[in-house]
Computed example of a mutant assay.
Amino acid sequence: MDELQLVRDRAADVPLPDLAELGAARARLLAAAASEPRRKTGKRLRQAGAATLGLAAAITAVVTFVPTGDGPLAPPQAAADPVRVLHGAAAEALKLPDTPPRPDQFVYVKTQYAESDREAWISADGQHDGYVKQDGQAFPLPACVDGKYRVEGANNPAANGTEEPCVVVPAYRTDLPTTTDAMIGYLNKNHSGDAGDVNAMGKDVQMLVGETYLPPQTKAALFDAAAKVPGLQAVDHVTDAAGRPGVGITWPGNGVTLVFDAKTFTYLGTTQGAVVGYGIVDHVGQLPR
């Protein structure tokens, strides 16, 4: 096996660490080398080769080789730091322009799946009728006005002589925290599962970055808060549902893998559904320019 080629391949999707990280890695390497007793020349040569590969791993922040005495090197372990990726996504979110929609506008999101696309026009204030197209079908998203569904068409509960109670769920979320600690508190209090259910929390994070409009500060707080979820794992060399390469982040028990651009940390979607269209429009059926 060509270990150096393996390092090059695994480094392709992950950015280099900063100088502080390199300095710390170099110091650990030199300390380990200084404490190693003198051995026979052949063995020292084998260890020198392992040390060279270890330094390459530190420089790329991609592969960790575990020394196993005189035996072969252990299989390389993954790679990108999930916390670093999410913090990078938060920093990238802060660069986005804050162009909030008007109450009467719609958040347009196009999501690409393996065998279909979904287009959604979601009311910014939750009080205007939205619309979804998927799998050759179309159906309205009923508006919630005065605590009751109000929508024209065959799916209107009022058409059958009944009106169902509802809660307004706007696509433009101005009710969410803008700091990391407050967002953690919000997720712990409002996530869909039981207390301590990181699976449910991970899915809620995915929903909030999906078919909504979050102000930059809120989106950054969400990614920074997600970085504190226990048990995060990074998955190298994944692609979203549109085939775009990136680095994946998973939670324990959560079958969803969030995918981020490995260089910019921009959120791309998931391995099941890629966000390929997004914008603010004036009416249902309109596409962003």
Rank of each mutant, 00 (worst) to 15 (best):
K43T: 02
K263V: 04
D9R: 11
S116R: 14
G71C: 07
T60Q: 04
Y108C: 10
G248Q: 03
K148H: 02
A234M: 01
G253M: 12
L141I: 15
L55M: 10
K110I: 05
G193V: 04
P252G: 07
Y186K: 01
L30H: 09
P140E: 07
A262K: 02
L55I: 07
C144K: 01
V198W: 13
V169P: 02
Q77C: 01
V109N: 15
V62E: 03
T179F: 14
L6Q: 09
P215Q: 15
L208H: 09
E115L: 08
A51D: 12
L208M: 14
D194F: 03
R28S: 04
P157Q: 01
Y131W: 07
L22E: 05
G42R: 15
D117C: 06
M183Y: 00
P216H: 01
A51K: 11
T41I: 11
T52P: 00
R46D: 05
Q105R: 10
K95T: 09
D181G: 08
A242K: 10
A171L: 05
A24I: 10
R244I: 03
V275C: 11
Y131E: 04
P67T: 00
Y267A: 07
R10S: 07
E115P: 02
L53P: 00
L16H: 14
T68L: 14
Y172W: 10
V168Y: 03
D282C: 02
M207V: 07
V275K: 07
F106P: 05
E163N: 09
L96N: 04
A48N: 11
L30W: 07
V229H: 04
T179V: 03
D175W: 00
G202C: 14
E21N: 08
P288Q: 03
D98Q: 14
L45A: 04
K40G: 07
R38N: 03
S35A: 06
T266C: 11
V205I: 08
P288H: 05
Y149Q: 09
A114R: 13
A171M: 08
Y267F: 13
A195H: 14
T264H: 06
L6A: 03
R39N: 02
V145I: 06
V85F: 07
L73H: 10
K133F: 03
G42N: 14
G23W: 13
D117E: 12
T180F: 01
D117R: 12
V85E: 00
G285M: 13
K263P: 00
V209C: 02
D125Y: 05
Y108R: 13
A227I: 01
D197T: 09
V132F: 14
G243L: 08
V14C: 08
A33R: 10
A124K: 14
G285D: 03
T271L: 08
N190K: 11
A31G: 09
V247T: 00
P252N: 09
G210F: 14
Y149F: 14
